[in-house]
């Protein structure tokens, strides 16, 4: 494989896409900005000095996606048909998950647009909150999925083989030494009776979307867990030992436990 932005003389050049066919394309990128719990609370309460942080950051992400070709030297301008920015406040991890999806009908992919949207959203969150929190960290910006074009659909889940994985970057400034590409999944009570083992390590690349619900679907698809056999009506979940819900976004290194409603005492 060669780098398409370098020509035969080793110079940077813009790829001629004139002969490429027009297809419907999309790309999704994600990132995470770490904040102090107090900052997050102020943000939730709408009490930050610069006003509605999330709405402003969302607009920044959309605007940035449209101007990607102005920022990235060899990136083609293209007409975006759709940009969406989702932000999810995560009190447990202490930060905000940012996800951007871009779509176009065109000759080149939109992953640079999605990455730029995530970056600008994070930068705007930083700008809006920096008066109360200077220790914020922006990180973990990556493409998770793209569709359309010559290479067809691509997602992290399909491409990274265990042992052949690109080493994960440190999760945050504190940087844990444990393997960050794994989720530790545990089962308790009756749920363990219907799981392959009481404890499993799942490569994060296999989970799409990266939520509790996505993880559950992945476990069921792999035959690791069969919640349909539960006598207990409900399945509960805890992430990092705190009860939560299925839409909870996961991060590398999370411990996720599934169990039926508790019956102690």
């Amino acid at each position: 494989m060669s780098l398409t932005h370098i020509n035969h003389r080793g110079e940077a050049h813009m790829v001629d896409v004139g002969d490429k066919s027009v297809t419907s394309r999309s790309a999704t990128a994600t990132g995470f900005i770490t904040m102090q719990p107090n900052t997050l609370q102020l943000l939730v309460d709408g009490a930050l000095p610069k006003g509605d942080v999330l709405a402003t950051a969302r607009i920044a992400g959309i605007q940035a996606a449209k101007r990607t070709s102005d920022l990235i030297p060899l990136c083609h301008p293209l007409p975006l048909t759709h940009v969406s920015i989702d932000m999810d406040i995560d009190m447990t991890k202490g930060g905000i998950h940012v996800m951007a999806t871009c779509r176009t009908d065109g000759k080149t992919g939109v992953e640079m647009e999605a990455l730029t949207a995530v970056s600008a959203t994070c930068l705007t969150l930083f700008d809006m909150c920096k008066a109360v929190d200077r220790r914020m960290v922006i990180g973990d910006i990556r493409v998770n999925e793209k569709t359309g074009g010559k290479s067809g659909s691509w997602s992290r889940e399909d491409t990274v083989a265990p042992g052949n994985a690109v080493p994960e970057e440190k999760e945050d400034a504190a940087g844990s030494s444990m393997s960050t590409a794994l989720l530790c999944v545990r089962f308790f009570g009756e749920a363990r009776d219907h799981a392959r083992a009481g404890m499993l390590d799942i490569n994060i690349e296999a989970v799409e979307p990266l939520t509790v619900a996505g993880l559950k679907a992945c476990l069921i698809a792999r035959g690791d867990f069969d919640p349909s056999r539960l006598q207990a009506g409900r399945l509960m979940v805890a992430v990092n030992q705190k009860m939560t819900s299925e839409d909870h976004l996961l991060s590398p290194g999370d411990e996720v436990a599934f169990f039926p409603p508790v019956t102690g005492g």
Binding site: F188, G189, E190, A238, M243, A257, F259, P260, P261, V262, T263, G264, G265
Partner: peptide
């Protein structure tokens, strides 16, 4: 305890 503590 009966509704929140993880005992089974």
């Amino acid at each position: 305890l009966k509704t929140r503590a993880p005992f089974w």
